[in-house]
Structures are given as structure tokens and as C-alpha cells.
Amino acid sequence: MTNSIHDMGGMHGFGPVEAEPDEPVFHEAWEGRVLAMQRAMGFTRLWTIDGGRASMEVLPPATYLAASYYQRWFLGLERRVVAHGLVGADEIAAGHALRPGRRLNRKLTPADVPNTLTRGNFERPSAAPARFSEGDRVRTANLNPQTHTRLPRYARGKTGTVEAIRGCHVYPDSAALGAGDDPQWLYTVVFTARELWGEAVDPAVSVSIEAFEPYLAPA
């Protein structure tokens, strides 16, 4: 969902940032199991990284805030395996399998693991040349879809400058729906903090987002 609690940029009231000295990679063993299950099930390509994000964004805001990071991953993964028909709700309730599994196109084996420690490539061939060039002034869309988007609320309807073209990439707004890659040009667009937050803020601050072409119009 677009206007949900995950879209936190600019919100007040969450208190100070508290860094933990010498933080371990995982605080509890189950966190590692959740991360590993997430990676292994992602390898099946039954959903995309954006589909995974979307499944956490639909958690009720109170649940999202009360859950730790890996709890959210777990809740999202549990929902996703049921939604994709891989696991029955009766099996979740029983705590073990009640039927044989579906056949998968890809299953992660130990030999594949080294490759999962390198991020995938989301660049795709382009159908058309990039609409914008470095230095162009652009205005971001005022869009509020019910579905997944990567245009944060604080940067909608704002005017900024294209700083770089990053290539043509999988479009999250489409991929999250299972509607295909629909590749789009990706730009770094920089805004003054005053454009985003008003005249009272520090003029020496600027903020950039990575913006897909459908988010942008000429300013």
C-alpha cells in the first residue's frame, strides 16, 4: 500500500536514534532463520523483491510498529507463502505439512548460496530513450495509489533537479503486482530541504530520491 506506516520520511514523534555498540549480526537465532527462508523463497522467483516489500506494507500500522524488523519479515513471508498457494492456512495452524509441496521452477541448493550473497541486477533493456537529461527541472507526481510505489509521500508534488540517469530498471509499481518488469528509466532527483519542508529549515541541506520516470513531469 502506498500511504501506509512504512512511508516514514519526515514523521515526528519516534524519538532519538539509538545505536547499539558492537551490535551482533543477529540478536536471536530465529532472526537468521527468517532471513535465510526469505532469501531461499525469493530464489524461487515466485514473487519479486517488490512483492515482498508490499506484503509487509499491508500489515496493519499498529502491527507494523509493534513488530521488530525480522518479525515483520516473518509475518510478510507467512502471508506470502499462503497467498501464493504454497502452504495452506491449515498447515500453518498445524505447524507441519499436511500435503506434498507444489513443484518449483527453482529451489535454492547449498551450491547456489554464494550467488545469493551478491545483489541481483534490476537493469533492463529500454523501450524508448530517457525523457529527461541531467540538469532538467522536474516536478514529481501527486499520486496516491492503493498499491505499492517507491515515491515517498514527502517527495510528491515537489520540484527538483535531475542529477543523474541511473539506467532503465524494473518498475516496482508494476513488479509488486506481479504485472511484469515494465522497465522504466531511473533518475537521481535532488530537492532543496526548503522545497520539501518549508522555509524554516536549514538551507544547506538537500535530499535526493531515486525516481522512476513515471513519477516525473517537466517543471
Partner: peptide, 18 residues
């Protein structure tokens, strides 16, 4: 347990990811 029993994940691969 469910994902393993249904043949979707290999616990040895999960160990290696961690």
C-alpha cells in the same frame, strides 16, 4: 518445518546463508 517438509527449502542452504 513446513517449507522443508514440502520440499521448498533445504535447511543446509539456510545454514550457509546465515
Amino acid at each position: 518445518t513446513i517449507l522443508t517438509e514440502k520440499g521448498y527449502v533445504d535447511p543446509a542452504a539456510l545454514d550457509q546463508i546465515i
